[in-house]
Each structure stands twice: as C-alpha cells, then as structure tokens.
C-alpha cells in the first residue's frame, strides 16, 4: 500500500511539476490562456499567471520528495477542482479557450474539452487513491 501511494505521489508530482515549468517559461502566454476563460479580471489574471506556476512546482516538489506533503495534498486537490470548474464552465458557455494546463496549447475548438476534463478527473482520482493507500498503510503500521 505504502509503495503504491509513493508511486502515485511521484506520478502526480511529476505532472504538477511539468505543468508548472511549462507555464513559468512564458507567463505572458499563460496569462493569455487564463483570459480566454473570461472569468478573471486582468489584474487577477496577471497575479495568477505569476503565482500558479510556482504553486504547481512547489506541490510537485512536495509530492516527489515528501516534504510538506500534507499541505501539498490540499493544494493539489483545491487547484485541480478549480481547474475542473473553469473547464466545465467554459464548455457550458461554449468558449474557445486555450486550456493553458501545460503551457499554451491549441484552442478548445481544435482539441475539445473531453481530454482536459478527463485528465483533471484522473488526477483527482489519483490523489484520492494515494491518500487512501497512505492512510491504510499508516493504520497497518500502528496496529
């Protein structure tokens, strides 16, 4: 159980880290992506374009190394839920968004919403599996 949790955390950590690095290479491109969701004002979008990539990188680092992992779990879950809500609202409103999930990508009119939404659901599922496995392993060790 412990090993499975560790593997899932590393996979999630690499994914978050990759997403963070892809965004922090070009914050302006990420800003353009955020604005396509038509949810945030310009100033908030600029702040997010600078902050979110580093938060993802921190979460990725925590998952891989185990350092501050408890906090990273909450942040990863929160961020993924927010990303999911942004994608769903964009799909419902028929917006042609650039996901921006892993840097600037093709618009939704070309790629659709299915894969980005599925990816976020998969990540939430992975996080849930890791937490459950970790707790079971801890309980087993205590008993």
């Amino acid at each position: 159980m412990k090993m499975l949790a560790r593997i899932v955390y590393i996979a999630l950590g690499v994914t978050f880290g990759w997403a963070g690095v892809a965004k922090l290479i070009d914050p302006s491109a990420f800003l353009s992506s955020i604005l396509t969701y038509e949810v945030f004002g310009y100033v908030l979008a600029v702040a997010a374009s600078l902050f979110v990539p580093y938060l993802e990188l921190c979460v990725g680092f925590s998952f891989v190394t185990g350092f501050l992992r408890g906090g990273a779990r909450w942040l990863a879950g929160g961020m993924t839920v927010v990303f999911l809500m942004l994608l769903v609202q964009a799909a419902l409103r028929g917006l042609d968004v650039d996901c921006g999930c892993f840097g600037s990508e093709a618009k939704a009119s070309e790629t659709g919403f299915l894969w980005p939404i599925s990816r976020d659901v998969l990540m939430l599922g992975g996080l849930w599996v890791a937490v459950i496995c970790e707790r079971k392993a801890d309980r087993k060790r205590e008993s």
């Binding site: 906090g71 990273a72 942040l75």
Partner: peptide, 9 residues
C-alpha cells in the same frame, strides 16, 4: 504546510 507552500509560491 499548505500556507508555507503558498508563501513560497
């Protein structure tokens, strides 16, 4: 821990 990570970011 979450606040610490937010602060670093």
């Amino acid at each position: 821990e979450a606040f610490a990570l937010i602060l670093i970011a």
